[in-house]
Amino acid sequence: MTTTAGIARARRGLGPGGPGRAAEPQRRSRLSTQAKRTFFWLLLPSVILLVLIHGYPLVYAAIQATHNGSLIETGQFVGLDNFAAVLNSPKFWKATEFTVVFTLVGVFGSWLVGMGLALLLRTRIPAGGTFKVLLLLPWVVPIVVSSTAWNWLVATPTSPVPTIFRTLGLGAPYFLADPTLAAIMVCLFKVWVSFPFMMMMTSSALASVDNTVYEAASMDGATRWQQFTGITLPLIARSTYISWILMTIFCVNDFPTIYLLTGGGPVDATTSLVVLAYRTVFQDFQTGTGVAIAFLMTMTLVVVSALLYRQIRKSSVE
Results as ranks from 00 to 15, higher is better:
70 S>A: 11
83 F>M: 05
82 N>D: 03
108 F>G: 06
94 K>W: 11
99 T>C: 05
83 F>G: 02
68 N>V: 12
87 L>E: 03
83 F>H: 05
74 T>W: 05
45 P>F: 10
36 K>G: 08
101 V>T: 10
72 I>E: 02
87 L>I: 10
86 V>A: 03
98 F>G: 01
78 V>N: 02
85 A>P: 00
66 T>E: 00
61 A>G: 04
31 L>P: 07
51 V>A: 11
109 G>I: 10
90 P>Y: 15
86 V>H: 00
76 Q>R: 10
107 V>I: 08
63 I>E: 02
108 F>C: 06
42 L>V: 14
102 F>E: 00
110 S>V: 09
66 T>F: 00
29 S>D: 15
86 V>Q: 01
53 I>T: 10
59 V>P: 00
99 T>H: 02
70 S>G: 12
52 L>E: 15
92 F>P: 00
73 E>N: 12
83 F>W: 06
62 A>Y: 03
99 T>P: 02
53 I>V: 14
61 A>V: 06
74 T>F: 00
57 P>D: 08
38 T>N: 09
110 S>M: 06
103 T>E: 03
38 T>M: 11
65 A>W: 01
104 L>W: 09
75 G>L: 02
48 I>N: 05
31 L>I: 15
51 V>H: 11
109 G>A: 08
87 L>T: 10
45 P>L: 08
91 K>F: 12
96 T>V: 08
44 L>H: 07
69 G>W: 04
88 N>S: 13
74 T>I: 10
90 P>R: 14
38 T>L: 09
72 I>H: 07
60 Y>E: 10
104 L>I: 13
75 G>V: 03
47 V>Y: 12
82 N>F: 00
103 T>A: 04
87 L>W: 04
62 A>L: 13
53 I>E: 02
110 S>R: 01
66 T>L: 04
44 L>R: 07
105 V>S: 01
54 H>Y: 12
77 F>Q: 04
98 F>Q: 03
78 V>L: 00
72 I>V: 12
65 A>V: 02
99 T>R: 03
61 A>F: 04
53 I>A: 15
111 W>L: 10
38 T>Y: 14
50 L>K: 09
34 Q>K: 15
104 L>D: 03
72 I>S: 04
54 H>A: 11
97 E>G: 13
48 I>Y: 08
76 Q>G: 01
54 H>K: 12
107 V>T: 00
59 V>Y: 09
39 F>H: 11
75 G>W: 00
49 L>Y: 13
102 F>V: 07
63 I>K: 05
92 F>V: 09
83 F>V: 06
91 K>C: 09
103 T>Y: 04
71 L>C: 06
89 S>P: 04
48 I>S: 07
36 K>H: 11
66 T>C: 03
62 A>V: 11
37 R>L: 15
99 T>I: 08
78 V>Y: 01
111 W>M: 09
66 T>Y: 02
81 D>K: 08
35 A>W: 11
96 T>Q: 06
61 A>I: 06
101 V>W: 07
95 A>G: 05
93 W>D: 08
60 Y>C: 04
95 A>D: 08
